[in-house]
Amino acid sequence: MRLSELPRIWMAPMAGEAASAALVAAVCSSGGFGQLGAAYLSPARIAEVAADIRARTTQPFGINLFCPQPWVRDDEALDDYLSRLAPWHTALGLAAPTRPERFEEDFEAQLAATVAARPAVISFVMGDPGAARVAALKAQGFLVVGTATQVAEGLLLQASGVDAVVAQGYEAGGHRGGFLGTAEGALIGTMALVPQLVDALGIPVIAAGGIADARGVAAAQALGASAVAVGTAFLLADECPLSPAYRAALLAARDADSTLTRAFSGRLARGVANRVTRALEGADLPAFPQPNAASRPMRQAAAKAGDADFISLWAGQALPLNRAGRPAADLVAALAKGWRP
């Protein structure tokens, strides 16, 4: 399959609560290209969800993974972070937080499960998968897509042989997908990033960040994008399994509530500000994925308790443009109106 054969409207891969077979399949079945954010899924779970997607649709889909992150365990910093979480654990009726036994899934095992699932596209964020890995995946018939937050990353990914690059603008929700320099040094808006990558690269560029309706789609196409990836707008789709507290927080959020934070995971990410992001603003935290694993019990308990103050409310800056709860098919159709054949 060629990239040009895929739909122009992509659902950005969203790990965590939004990683749902029903949502991915609904997007694919309605003329879009759905992707499963599998970064937090075990290899066995990747196989299960991929099989569920195939049971729901005959259309192609993608699977996204986080590239392995270099990090050093820092128990002193981790214990300090756990002490910050302790009062919130108490408020939620949880036992005092403890050091996680495991911090992340095994990337190679996840990738093996992804290959076995045979998606049309395997995409990566937070790194360059490398020329050897890209060549091996392409030899097996996969389309390979990388993520760039600046031109230098796009050039490196192109040199590694990827089929396309997602241009993740500053406006995008969730974790920043860049990997060169500092995250703060690559906060480039979609309107500025897309044309620079289009001019610098000889492969397709997929625009992501701040696109929530047909106007955003049209603007991305005018800038030279070959497709668009939309994430936040799909969070409020009927098929997205967000907790009621998360959904309510998104519906109530104003434009000024959008924030960049490391509070929940240790890595810069965009979401709706809440008690945790405000309390930990500017705090010196251990490196990702240590806080991500340490805060998971709190986040899960808060979701069950309906308390959005302790949930990582990932969402992009265009959130207020798309409030309506509706089937994913309706959103795909509305977005597609912005793309000129």
Rank of each mutant, 00 (worst) to 15 (best):
A77N: 13
A77G: 14
L78E: 15
D79C: 06
D80F: 04
Y81A: 07
Y81W: 15
S83Q: 15
R84V: 03
R84Q: 12
A86Y: 01
A86S: 14
W88L: 06
T90R: 13
A91N: 01
L92R: 06
L94Y: 15
L94G: 09
A95L: 04
A95E: 15
A95R: 04
R99D: 14
P100H: 10
E101D: 11
R102Q: 08
R102H: 12
F103N: 00
F103V: 05
E104S: 12
D106L: 01
F107N: 00
A109T: 14
L111V: 13
A113E: 08
T114N: 05
T114I: 00
V115H: 14
A116Y: 07
A117R: 07
R118H: 07
R118S: 11
P119F: 15
S123W: 08
S123Y: 06
S123A: 12
S123N: 03
V125C: 09
P129L: 02
P129Q: 06
P129G: 03
A131Y: 00
A131M: 06
A135H: 14
A135G: 01
A136N: 08
A136M: 03
K138P: 05
A139I: 10
A139D: 15
G141D: 08
T147C: 04
A148T: 12
A148I: 11
A148M: 09
Q150M: 13
V151R: 00
Q158T: 07
Q158P: 04
V162T: 09
A164E: 03
V166W: 00
R176C: 07
G177M: 00
G178H: 12
G178D: 05
G181L: 14
G181N: 10
E184Q: 15
G185Y: 11
A186L: 01
A186R: 05
I188P: 07
V194S: 08
P195F: 07
A200S: 12
A200M: 01
I203A: 02
I203K: 11
P204R: 02
V205T: 03
V205L: 10
A207I: 06
